[in-house]
Design a protein around this nucleic acid. Structure first.
Length: 828
RNA sequence: GCGGGCGUGGCGGAAUGGCAGACGCGCUGGACUUAGGAUCCAGUGGGGGCAACCUCGUGCGGGUUCAACUCCCGCCGCCCGCACCA
C-alpha cells in the first residue's frame, strides 16, 4: 500500500474496474428480496450542481447499504431530456440544435456522475427525448385518450410571455412563470388537458397510503387538491331564461343573501348586459380586468371592485330579488365562478357590502347575544342559531347546513356538491422540444388518434426556432401535412408537444425494462420492482411531479398495466445546498462547482462532506473548511492502515472475541458498537451525518489502539476493527475503501460484501458509570456492574459512602433508579 | 390570513423525557521539524476559583415531571409552501 493517499489514481482505477466488471449491473430477477432505490432524474442542463451531488450521494449510500444488506437493488439513472432550455439555447446561439445540445449535456453529466462513483446500472439509462422512449410517452397519451382522460378544449389558460407557451396551473407561481419568472397572462386557447380531476378523490384519499412520505409534502398535496364540501344553489335571473348557480360552503346563510357577484369572465355576463345601459361600462371593466397580469389580478392588495349589471336574480328560499354584480375578486376557475353575498357572515362580503352599501342581514345569532347589523364591525363567522330564516329559525347552524341542503334538493333548487381546487392538467405546449401529441385532424373524421402501430410520431429535425406563440412544428409542412389514419384523406397533425412532466410521470416504470419494444414495459419486470421503495429528491417537486406521477400510476393501475396504486412507498425530500446562507446562484456569485471539488479533493471527499455536514432533509451550509476536514479524515484513514496493511493481511481470520481483555476487549467493544450505531443510523434513521461521526470515532479509537505496545494488542482484533471500518465507510467513500480493502488482502469488491453484523456479546459492558443526582442535579459518578435491576441499583447506590454524605441530614423523599443510566435522589 | 418547519458554543451540527454541546470546523497550547499552511497529542459554552469544585446556560414567559433541548400552553424571530377558494 502506498504511503500517500492519491485520490486521483485510486478513483480512476476503481471506476475503470467497476465498469469493466459490470459491478453495478443488476439482473431483472433474483431470489433475494428486492429494493428499488430511485433518485429524481435530472434535466440535462449541462453540468451537475451541488444539489445533484447531494441527491445522488444520498441515494448511493442507500443503494450500496441495501445491496450489502443482501437486497436485490435496482438503482438506475436517466435524463429528463425534453424541455425549454435546449430550445432556448438553439434560439440564442443559432446553429446548435436542441437535440445536439441535449446529447452533449447528457454525455457530460453522465461522465460527471461516473466520476462521483455512483453505483448506477448504466445499462438501464433512459432519456425521455429518445424516440424509443417518447414513442411510449405517446402511447400512454393514447391510452388516456381512449379512456376519455385526454381532451381538448377552449379555455382561458396561463400564458408565459417569455417562454411563449402555455403553462399548467401548477407551473404558475405568484402569478409568474415558475421556470423563468416572467409574468403570466390569461389567453383563450384550445388546449389538451388530462382529466386529473376525475382522480381528485382518490389522489386525496390515498395520501393515507403514503406512510413513508414527509407530512409536509402530504399536506401540500392535500391543500393543492383542496376538497371542500358545499351546496350548489340555483338563482333564477329575472327577465331572462337563465340560472345563476352558486357554490357555497355556507348554505345555512342562504337567507342572508343580499346580492350576487359573478366573475368578470363569467359566460352569463355578456348575456345579462346585452343591450342595456350597463353594457358599455361592464365590457370596458371586463376588458381591463382580463388584460391585467396574473400578478396584479391575484394580488391581495388590490381593491375589491364591484359593478352592477343591472340584472337581478331570485333567491329561491325566500323569493327575494337580489342585484347581480360582477366583481374583480371572483375567480371563474373556482366553484361555479360566482359568489353569493352574505355580508353579515363573511368578512369579505361584509367589507364589500359596506363599501357599496348593500344591506347586512343577520341570519345566524351567536349564543346569548343579539347582533345589530348597524353596529357590527365585522362579519360573524362563528357558530350560532338561525334567525330570519323562516322554518329554519332556531336551528343550530351546523345542523342547518345539512337541513337546508336537503330542503333545496327536495325542491330541486340545489344540491350537495364536492368541489375541488385541483384543475385539470394542461399538457399542451407550443414548443418544439417535446414529445409530439399523437393526434391528427381530418376534415372528414375530425380528431383522430394516431394508431399505435404508427408510433412514434417523430419530431422533425429541421425546423425554425422562433418563439412566435405557435409551435415551431406548425411551420413545418412536412410534419403538419399527413393523411388521416381513418379515411386516408388529407389531414393535419397536432403541432403542440407535451408538457415534460408527462415524460417524467412514468420513467420509473421504464427503468425496469428500458429496452422493451413490445410495450412501455414488461409487466413481469414492473411487478418485480415496483413500487419504488425509496424515492429521493428536492421538495420543489412536492406538488408537480409527485402529484402527476401518482395520477399516472392510478390510471395505469386501472388499465391493469401496473399492479401498484402508489408509485413511491418512501419519500425523502432533501434540503438545499446553501452558501453564505442563501441558495447558490450565478447572479450571487456563490456557486461552488462539483467539478472543482472533485478535481481538488476527489469524489470520496465531496460525497463524505455533503453527507456529514447536515442531516439529509435539512438545508446544508457549504463550508470549504468542512470539506478540508473530510479530506483530512480520509487521509487519516489511509495513514492508519497503510503501515499496518501487511500485518493485517497475515492476521488470523477470526479474533477470538470471548477471550479478549483490557484494551483488546475495549477495541472490540468500540468496533461492534460502531457497527450497531452506523447500521441504525443509515438503515432506520437516514442520519448519515451521525453515521459518519460514529465512523470517525472508530478511527480515533483505532489511532489510540495502534499506539499500544505490540504485545498489548491483538492482530485479530485490529484486523476485525479495520475490516469493519472499511465496510461501514464503503457506502460513503466507495473508492478509498475499495482500494484499502484490496490492499489488506481481501479478494472481491468491498461493495459485494455482506454488511457487518454486530456481536451483542462484544458490545456488552461489565461495568457502567452511572450518574447520581440529587433533585435532578448531577452530584456523583459511580462505577457499577452492568445490568443491575432498579432495586439492586437503588440499594447499591444508597449504600455508597459518598452518596451517604450527600443525603446526610436531609429527608429522603424519593429515589428513582434508572438501570444502567442514573439514580435520582429527591431530598429535602 | 392559513399550513409546515426551524431557533442549542465562534461555525456546521449531536443528544428513545435521564450526564446538554458527540463528531467535524475554527481557535489555543505542546510535540516533531531548518521550516510548517503537513502530522500527532492536549485543551476549548459563560462566570468564579491555584485547585478538587461551585454556578449560570438550549429564542422568551409559563406549565407537566423525581428529571425538559425534548412533552403541553402563550409569545418573539427567521425560513418555506399556499393564498380573495366563496
Amino acid at each position: 500500500m502506498k504511503e500517500k493517499y492519491d485520490f486521483q489514481e485510486v478513483e480512476k482505477k476503481w471506476q475503470g474496474r467497476w465498469a469493466a466488471e459490470n459491478l453495478y449491473v443488476v439482473p431483472d430477477f433474483s431470489d433475494r428480496p428486492k429494493y428499488y432505490c430511485l433518485e429524481m432524474f435530472p434535466y440535462p442542463s449541462g453540468k451537475l450542481h451541488m444539489g445533484h451531488v447531494r441527491n445522488y450521494s444520498i441515494g448511493d449510500v442507500v443503494a450500496r447499504f441495501k445491496t450489502m444488506e443482501g437486497y436485490h437493488v435496482l438503482h438506475p439513472m436517466g435524463w429528463d431530456a425534453f424541455g425549454l432550455p435546449a430550445e432556448n439555447a438553439a434560439i440564442k446561439h443559432g446553429g446548435i440544435h436542441p437535440a445536439d445540445w441535449t446529447v452533449d449535456n447528457i454525455d457530460n453529466m453522465r461522465e460527471q456522475l461516473k466520476q462521483l462513483g455512483i453505483s448506477y446500472d448504466w445499462n438501464r439509462e433512459v432519456a425521455t427525448c429518445h424516440p424509443e422512449y417518447y414513442r411510449w410517452t405517446q402511447w400512454l397519451f393514447l391510452q388516456l385518450f381512449h379512456q376519455g382522460l385526454a381532451y381538448k378544449k377552449q379555455a382561458a389558460v396561463n400564458w408565459c410571455t417569455d417562454c411563449a407557451t402555455v403553462l399548467a396551473n401548477e407551473q404558475v407561481k405568484d402569478g409568474s412563470c415558475e421556470r423563468c419568472g416572467a409574468p403570466v397572462e390569461k389567453r383563450e386557447l384550445a388546449q389538451w388537458f388530462f382529466k386529473i380531476t376525475d382522480y381528485a378523490e382518490r389522489l386525496l384519499k390515498d395520501i393515507d397510503l403514503l406512510g413513508g412520505w414527509p407530512d409536509k409534502v402530504k399536506i401540500m398535496q392535500e391543500h393543492w387538491i383542496g376538497r371542500s364540501e358545499g351546496t350548489e344553489i340555483d338563482f333564477k335571473v329575472v327577465g331572462h331564461d337563465e340560472v345563476i348557480t352558486v357554490f357555497t360552503t355556507r348554505p345555512d346563510t342562504v337567507f342572508g343573501v343580499t346580492y350576487m357577484v359573478l366573475a368578470p369572465e363569467h359566460p352569463l355576463v355578456e348575456k345579462l348586459v346585452a343591450g342595456t345601459d350597463y353594457e358599455a361600462e361592464i365590457k370596458e371593466f371586463v376588458r381591463k380586468v382580463s388584460n391585467m397580469s396574473e400578478i396584479d389580478r391575484t394580488s391581495n392588495e388590490i381593491e375589491k371592485i364591484g359593478l352592477p349589471t343591472g340584472a337581478y336574480c331570485i333567491n329561491p328560499v325566500n323569493g327575494e330579488k337580489v342585484p347581480v354584480l360582477i366583481g374583480n375578486y371572483v375567480l371563474l376557475e373556482y366553484g361555479t365562478g360566482c359568489v353569493m353575498g352574505v355580508a353579515a357572515h363573511d368578512q369579505r362580503d361584509f367589507e364589500f357590502a359596506k363599501k357599496y352599501d348593500f344591506p347586512i342581514r343577520v341570519v345566524i345569532q351567536p349564543p346569548g347575544e343579539d347582533l345589530d347589523p348597524a353596529a357590527m364591525e365585522g362579519a360573524y363567522e362563528e357558530e350560532g342559531v338561525l334567525v330570519n330564516s323562516e322554518q329554519f329559525d332556531g336551528m343550530p347552524n351546523t345542523e342547518a347546513i345539512k337541513a337546508i341542503t336537503e330542503y333545496l334538493e327536495q325542491k330541486g333548487w340545489g344540491r350537495f356538491r364536492v368541489n375541488f381546487r385541483l384543475r385539470d392538467w394542461l399538457i399542451s405546449r407550443q414548443r418544439y422540444w417535446g414529445a409530439p401529441i399523437p393526434i391528427v385532424y381530418c376534415e372528414r373524421c375530425g380528431t383522430v388518434p394516431v394508431p399505435e402501430s404508427e408510433l412514434p410520431v417523430l419530431l422533425p429535425r429541421e425546423v425554425e426556432f422562433r418563439p412566435t406563440g405557435q409551435s415551431p412544428l406548425a411551420e413545418c409542412p412536412e410534419f403538419v401535412n399527413t393523411v388521416c389514419p381513418a379515411c386516408g384523406g388529407p389531414a393535419k397533425r397536432e403541432t403542440d408537444t407535451m408538457d415534460t412532466f408527462m415524460c417524467s410521470s412514468w420513467y420509473y416504470f421504464r427503468y425496469t425494462s428500458p429496452r422493451e419494444t413490445a410495450g412501455p414495459w414488461d409487466k413481469a419486470k414492473v411487478d418485480r420492482w415496483l413500487p419504488v421503495d425509496q424515492y429521493i429528491g428536492g421538495v420543489e417537486h412536492a406538488i408537480l411531479h409527485l402529484l402527476y406521477s401518482r395520477f399516472f400510476t392510478k390510471v395505469l393501475y386501472d388499465l391493469k398495466l401496473v399492479s401498484v396504486q402508489e408509485p413511491f412507498t418512501n419519500l425523502l425530500t432533501q434540503g438545499m445546498v446553501l452558501k453564505d446562507g442563501t441558495k447558490m446562484s450565478k447572479s450571487k456569485g456563490n456557486v461552488i462547482s462539483p467539478e472543482d471539488i472533485v478535481a481538488r479533493y476527489g469524489a470520496d471527499t465531496a460525497r463524505l462532506f455533503i453527507l456529514f455536514a447536515a442531516p439529509p432533509e435539512r438545508d446544508l451550509e457549504w463550508s470549504d473548511q468542512g470539506v478540508e476536514g473530510c479530506y483530512r479524515f480520509l487521509n487519516r484513514v489511509w495513514r492508519l492502515v497503510a503501515p499496518l496493511a501487511d500485518k493485517i493481511k497475515s492476521a488470523a481470520d477470526d479474533a477470538p472475541r470471548a477471550k479478549q481483555v483490557g484494551a483488546n476487549r475495549e477495541m472490540l467493544r468500540v468496533t461492534h458498537g460502531t457497527i450497531k450505531k452506523v447500521t441504525d443510523d443509515i438503515g432506520a434513521r437516514f442520519n448519515f451525518n451521525t453515521a459518519v461521526s460514529a465512523i470517525m470515532e472508530l478511527v480515533n479509537a483505532l489511532y489510540q489502539y495502534k499506539e499500544l505496545p505490540e504485545t498489548d494488542r491483538d492482530q485479530g482484533v485490529l484486523r476485525e476493527a479495520i475490516d469493519a471500518l472499511l465496510l461501514l465507510l464503503a457506502p460513503f467513500a466507495p473508492h478509498i475503501t475499495e482500494e484499502i480493502w484490496e490492499a489488506t488482502g481481501h479478494t472481491g469488491s468491498i461493495h459485494s460484501q455482506p454488511w457487518p453484523v454486530y456481536d451483542e456479546l462484544a458490545i456488552k459492558e461489565e461495568e457502567i458509570t452511572i450518574v447520581v443526582q440529587t433533585n435532578g442535579k448531577v452530584r456523583e459518578r459511580l462505577l457499577v456492574p452492568a445490568g443491575l435491576s432498579a432495586d439492586a441499583l437503588r440499594e447499591k447506590v444508597l449504600g455508597e459512602p459518598r452518596v451517604q454524605q450527600l443525603i446526610e441530614g436531609k429527608k429522603l423523599v424519593k429515589v428513582i433508579p434508572v438501570p444502567d443510566k442514573l439514580v435520582n435522589i429527591v431530598i429535602k
